[in-house]
Every structure is written in structure tokens, then in C-alpha cells.
Amino acid sequence: MNEFVLLVGKGKLVEEIDSYLNQQGVKTKTLDQVFPANEVIAVFDLETGLNQEKRQLLQQVETRVTQQTPIFTSVLHRTATEIASWLFYPERLVGFSPLLLPKMTSVEICFPIQSLRPNHKLLSIWKQLGKDVEIVGDQPGLVFARTLALLVNEASFALSEGVAKATDIDLAMQKGLNHPQGPLQWADQVGVHHLYAVLEGLQREYGEDRYRPAPLLRKMMYAQFIGVESEQGFYSYGAQEMRQDPHCFADRPERRSKMLSDA
């Protein structure tokens, strides 16, 4: 059989998941290739959905696959329910969180309310990939991305208030709480835009101020400071994806008693 996963989206996350799937022996194709509809075993839509492109892409996808083909869509910014409302056959849509997918032993998925009785047969691809499936409720960011987005948001507020410099904030969370990475470095790794998308999605869905993205994050979105992917996030990056510079553009040494040295 010539089965494959149809990958939708662009950017570093898509490349990472593409190479992960290939390593697992799963072939991938994209919309610009020619293929018969019945060979698509699943669609992975990784578009974050901050603009209208996601909707157009998914409507295009529906014309290229069968009615039953499971479509896994990134719910970092929108709920699966909202995304399903764009489709002719919403029952086969499943939300998932693509962040850290290659690394995590589990995958978080959610069903839209349109699939009144969730069809677990849609999930067979995850068994094939050896992932533990965690079925959670349908809200932007699900569990991990939502948690990380809020940690990064708070770190961004603290950074722009000058409470500590960026490297100290990262060191604090690593050394004080044994987090695998500091929030700002972590955001640069996974992509600031994905986490921003979660915050804006939560703010819209809940209408609550607690999810308001820090003004610093909004500015970083305007400037496309999205992290390693654009070689500039909270930190600057060179060709080898190494952190080149401990200095962060948003540091405010003047707030801390004119602390100029890097003591």
C-alpha cells in the first residue's frame, strides 16, 4: 500500500513532524503533490490558525481526501469545535497539540462537540506511532501548550517590568524548580508564535483578562521575533541554533539599580 499522512502547514514545526514521521516509517505528502484520495491515512494540519489561511487550507483538504479520512488539526489557537464547523464532514475532525510531538511519549487530542459519539477508530495512527493517547477537553492549547504559554506570558511580564534579566529568569526556573528549560529559552525553541496563539485563543474563548498576552509578546509577533526559527526570539541565534548571546533585547538593566555588568 502507498499509504501516507497528508501534512498541511509550514515552518519549523512542520519540518520537525515531517522528519519524525519519516523516521517512524510513515510516508508524508503535501497538498501540492498529486495523490489518490484513498491513500491518505490521516491529515495532520499544523497551521496555528491566527489568520484565515487555516480555514481555506482545510476546505481544500476536504476536496482531496475521503469523507472518512481522519483530520488531526492543531488546536493551539482555536477549538476543534470551531474548526469542525468549517467542514462538510466535521465528525472526522480531531484536535491535537503538535508541540513537542516527536519528543513526548503521549499525544493530547480532543473531539469537537459535533462528533456526538467520539469515534476512537479515528485514532489508529497514534497506535502505529506508539503514542499514548490522552483525550482531553476541547479548549485552545489543551494541557501542555496552555501551561507553557501561561508560564512564558508571566515570564514576559516580569521581564518587561525589569524584575530580573532574561537569563536570570530562565536560570531561576531551571535551578529553582528543575524545569527542563527556562520559559524564555523554551519559547524560543517551540516558537513564540505558537504560544502567543494559545494565549489569544484562550482570551477569546474565555473572555478573561488572565489570558491577555503580555505587550512584549505582541511586539515580538509584529517584529516576527518568533525564536530559533527566525534566528531572533527572546535571544539571538546564529546558524548552528546555538544560543549566541546571553543578552536579551528586552532586558532592562536600568530598573535594577543601573546594573550594567554581567556579574
Binding site: G137, L150, E154, A164, A172, L177, M259
Partner: peptide
Amino acid sequence: IHVLDTPGFIVNRVARPFHLEAYRIVGEGL
């Protein structure tokens, strides 16, 4: 690390959502 005298400094402040959001996620039945 050098921090300003603000509520929770860095660690206790930035760790807040790790705990509080978990309560919300569970409380909402997600």
C-alpha cells in the same frame, strides 16, 4: 540571581500559572 522586590520575585510568580491553570483545567472538566 538578582531580582527586584516585587510580589513572588521570579520563581514564585512565574510558577503560579503552573499550579493555577492546572486547577482550572481540572475544574472545568477538561
